[in-house]
Design a protein around this nucleic acid. Structure first.
Lengths: 181, 181, 181, 181
DNA sequence: GATGAATGAGCTTTCATTCAT
DNA sequence: AATGAATGAAAGCTCATTCAT
C-alpha cells in the first residue's frame, strides 16, 4: 500500500481490507498507525540486513552494489523505503529506528571499503568512512529517483551506473593517459 | 508547513490559517490541493534554477557543490524537497514537473562536467552524463538523510564530503605507488 | 440528547442528525465535543441567571425555591444539569465554568438570606453563608434524585418539601409548644 | 476507574487492564457492561449499609452525619456514587437497584428522626419523613459538589456544615428575642 | 478460568471541496 | 478578493461483545 498509494493515502482501513481483515483486527496487533509503520520499517531493514549478511566477509564492492541494485527486482522495495524515510522526520520514534539501522549499514560499508583499501582494490586517498558516506548517498539518490522516473533505470543504465561507481572508488590506474607529456 | 509537519499532516486548512486567511481563500487561488503543491514545487525549482544560473558558465564543480550545500542555510529547503519528491509518484501531473526540471539539471551538470573534462579538470574515464548522474544522486542522497539526521551534517563534515566528491571526479593524479619506483 | 440519552450516549453524530445537519456542521461551530458541552452549560446557566434576576431584590426565600422548583416544568432541565455536573470533574475547563457560576449563585443566596435575617424572616442562629450552602445542597440533592425517581416528585410532595425547607430556615416561632412546662 | 476517569471514559478494556486481566476475563464474570456496573453499585451500597448498621439503634443524628462525611476519607467514594447516580437514568435495571437502596436509607433516616422527635432531640414541627428527605438531599448535594470543588470541603467547613444541619433539625430553643421581655 | 483473536459498529475529528454571499 | 457555512467522506481509534481454544 505504501508503495502503491504513498504514505498520505495509506489508511488502516485500506490496509485491513487488503489483508482481508477489519480495521479492528489491525489495531489489535498494532496499537496505532505509527507502530504499524515502524514494524514495517523494521521488517524491511531486516530483509536488507539479510541481504548484506551474505557479503559480510566480502571485499568485492561491485558485488555489494549489485545486491543493492538487485532490489529493483521488487519494484516496490525502493518506493516503500522512500515513503518510510520521507516520513521518518515526523515520527521521532520511527526516525530513531532508521538512524540506528542506517548507522549499522554505514559501519559495514566502511569496514568493507577499509578492507578494500588494505587489499589495494579501493582508492586510499579518501578515508573509508567518507567513501562509505558517498556510496550510501549514491544508493539513496538512486532510490529516490527510481519511484519518480522508473523508466530511466533500465538494466543497461543501471549496469553503467554501477560500473561508473566502481570506477570512482577504484585506485587510479597506472598510466591513465599521456596527458601533457 | 511541508517541512515542519510533512506532507501527510499538511492540510489546506492549516496552510490557510498560517497565512492568515480562510480555507476558501486558498481554494480561490488554487483549484485544489494538487495545484497548490505543484505551484510550490515550481517555485522551489525556480529558486533553485536561479541559484544555478550564476554558475552557468562556470566549470568549477566544487563551487557548484558548494552552492548546493549552501541550501542547508535554510533548514527547510531540503525537507520540503523530500516531501515533494516522495509524493511525486502519486500525483502524475506533479511527477511530470519534477521529471522536466530534473532533466534540465542533469543536462546542465553534464555540460559543466564535459567542459571540465575538456579542460582536464574532470576525469574523463567516465562519460560526463554518468558522472552527472552520480553527482546528482549524491546530492539527493545527502538531501534525503539531512531531514532525518541533521546533526550528522556539521559544516566540517559537509566540507569533507564536498572535498571527497571533488576528489572522486578529479583526474587521477600520477599513481602514488609508481612514484618511488 | 443529554437528558434523553446521557452524556456517555450523546455523540456529535446524533446531535447533528437531530439538528438536521451533518457532523461536519457541528464541528464547524464547536471545535470539539468539550466546547459544545461547555457552550450548552453556559447557556443553561444563563437561563438560570435570568430566572434569578427576577428575584434579585427579593427577600422572599419561598419564592426563590418556588422558581427553582418551577424548573420541573421542563422535565429535561434537571437531568441535563446532572449530566453536566457529573461530567465536570473530567473536563477541567468545563469544571471551571461550573465553579464560577455556582459561586455566583451561592453569593446571591447568601445576600438574600442575610437580608432575610436582617428583616427577621430568616433564622439568625446560623450564618447566612452556611444557610446558603445548605439550601444550595438541598436543591442539588433534589435535582440529582429527580431524574432517577421522577415519580417521587409529585407537585404536592414538592410543595411539602418547599414548605419544610422554609420552615427549617425560618426563625423559631414564639412559643413552639408547652414542652416540659 | 469510574472516579478517576468518569463513566464515559471507563471501558471494560481499561478495567481489565487495571485489574491485570484481559477483556475476556471481565466478560467471563459479567455478561455485559451493565452487569459489571450494577455489581459495583450493589457493592458500594453494601458497604454503605454496613456503615449505617452501626448506627442502627442510634438516635444521634449528628453521629449519623459524621459517618456520612467520614466517606470523604476515601476521595473516590463520592465521585463513584455520582457517576453511578448520573448514569442510573439510562440503565433501567440499574435505576431499580438505586431506587430500592435509597428507599431503605430514607426509611432508616425517617425512623431515626422519628425516634429523635419522640425523645425531643429533633424538632417535631416537620414530619420525620420530610426531614429525612431534606437531610438526604443535603447529603446528596454535598456529594455532588465534592468531586467538582473538593477544595471547598475542608474539614472545618464540613464540621460547620454538619453543625448547621444539626441546628436546622434541632427543636427551636426558647426564642431569643423573647428572653429579655 | 481465562486468553487471544477478531468483529463491526461507532466515536471524535479532520479534510478537501463547494458555493452563496 | 475573500469569507463563512456546510457537506460528505474518510481518517485513526476505541469499544462492547463473541467465541474458539
Amino acid at each position: 500500500m505504501l508503495a502503491e498509494e504513498g504514505y498520505a493515502n495509506t489508511s488502516l482501513r485500506k490496509v485491513a481490507t487488503r489483508a482481508g481483515y477489519t480495521t479492528g483486527a489491525v489495531t489489535y496487533y498494532f496499537a496505532n498507525k505509527d507502530e504499524l509503520i515502524t514494524a514495517l520499517a523494521e521488517s524491511r531493514f531486516d530483509s536488507f540486513d539479510a541481504m548484506l549478511e551474505g557479503s559480510h566477509d566480502d571485499t568485492d564492492v561491485k558485488a555489494l552494489f549489485g545486491r543493492w541494485l538487485a532490489r529493483t527486482d521488487d519494484p516496490e522495495f525502493w518506493p516503500v523505503m522512500i515513503q518510510l524515510l520521507a516520513h521518518a522526520r515526523y515520527e521521532p520514534a520511527f526516525a530513531a529506528v532508521i538512524e540506528r539501522r542506517y548507522a549499522r549499514f554505514r559501519e559495514l560499508y566502511t569496514s568493507i571499503l577499509a578492507a578494500g583499501q588494505a587489499h589495494g582494490t579501493v582508492r586510499d586517498d579518501i578515508p573509508a568512512d567518507l567513501l562509505a558516506d558517498q556510496l550510501s548517498a549514491i544508493g539513496d539518490g538512486w532510490m529516490m529517483m527510481f519511484p519518480i522516473e522508473p523508466d530511466r533505470f533500465t538494466p543497461s543504465r543501471l549496469r553503467a551506473l554501477v560500473d561508473a561507481a566502481v570506477t570512482l572508488i577504484s585506485p587510479p590506474r597506472r598510466a591513465p593517459r599521456e596527458r601533457g607529456s
